[in-house]
Each structure stands twice: as C-alpha cells, then as structure tokens.
Design a protein around this nucleic acid. Structure first.
Length: 192
DNA sequence: ATTTTCAAT
C-alpha cells in the first residue's frame, strides 16, 4: 500500500482576528487550542528584502484517513513551490504550537536538502514541553541551526499586520503575552 | 504556578 503523503495545498491568505486572538496567546494552559497555525514568510535571493517576500498561513489538516501537521503542509508546499535547492532562502515561521519530534526531524531533513536556507521559528507556545522527546526535538532544530524563540510582542504585532484580516483594527496586545516569561525561561532551559 | 495540547477509548 502506498504511504499517504501530504500534498501541497494553497496556504490561506489571512487569519480571522478572533481566530488569531484565540489561537496565538502565550498561554501555559491553552485549553481547547486543538489546531496549529503556521504563518510564514519566504525571502529569496541575495538581498532578503521584505517587500517581495512570499507570505501565507497554514493550518494542520485533518482527514478521515490521515493527518498533516502545519509544518508538513509548509514543507510539501515549499518543495513544490521552490524546487531550486541551491538558491538562498530566508524562511520565517510564526507558530501557535512548537513542532513535535516528528516534524522537527522532517525539518532537519529539509534543511539538509536546502543547504542555503535559513529558518527562524517564533512559537507562541511549547507543545508538550515537559516530555523529554519533545524537548529533544527542539534541541535537534537548534543544533541544525534553526533560530528558536517564543513569540514576543513585536512578533505578535508583525503577525497582526501581515497575517490577520484586521480590517484596519489596531493591534492590541490584550492577553497575548500572558505566560511569555515562563515559556521563554522554559525554552532557554530546554536549549541549554 | 505545572498540564490535556497539530482532536477522539
């Protein structure tokens, strides 16, 4: 039987403001956030100019026969969209949940394919951070040269401006930074 | 501070 492979799908353009406010806060107790959002930007070439970056949003897919984490959706989309492996790429992710160990492995393989690609991950929350194998997944990313950080106020504002269908509404931090300090300390501890 | 989270005993 053929293993199921996630097929590239088009990313969303923008997230609904309420979806952003529900799914993105730095919460330690993130009850009900049973989805993961990934906002990305891809800059190409020698000059990483922000003006012509490719942007979009992925969410994990759930099918009766298979699942696809948001990161896997991105990776398969990227391989399809940017087949050139030698080009210089600067990729940034803003994630609502940090990658699971499987996705971390797949990202490391992806970075081995694209030798001139740099990846920065800003995550709002740490997914199962107290499980050793999840911690190890994050360390593998770090060791592979991925920049890893907890989403800060500036990151939230950047996402609001670029990935949220804000219809002119001004950015408000509200509870977005609620457990930032705890999560940032925890991430430092994991990567130490 | 310590838990239920890329849904499902």
């Amino acid at each position: 039987m053929e293993p199921w492979r996630p097929s590239p799908r088009n990313p969303m353009d923008r997230i609904d403001p309420n979806t952003f406010r529900f799914h993105f806060p730095n919460l330690l107790y993130a009850s009900g956030r049973k989805l993961c959002y990934l906002c990305f930007q891809v800059e190409t070439g020698d000059y990483f100019s922000c003006d012509d970056s490719d942007r979009g949003v992925f969410r994990n897919k759930v099918h009766p026969w298979a699942r696809c984490h948001a990161e896997q959706c991105f990776l398969s989309w990227f391989r399809d969209q940017y087949p050139c492996r030698d080009e210089y790429y600067n990729v940034t992710w803003f994630l609502s949940w940090s990658p699971c160990p499987t996705c971390a492995e797949e990202v490391v393989e992806f970075l081995e394919e694209y030798r001139n690609l740099t990846l920065s991950i800003f995550t709002s929350r740490l997914y199962y951070f107290y499980h050793p194998n999840y911690q190890q997944g994050l360390r593998k990313l770090w060791d592979a040269g991925v920049q890893l950080d907890i989403m800060s106020c500036d990151d939230f504002e950047h996402c609001w401006d670029n990935f949220v269908d804000h219809k002119g509404m001004r950015f408000q931090r509200r509870n977005l930074l609620k457990d930032y300090d705890f999560l940032a300390a925890e991430l430092q501890e994991i990567l130490r």
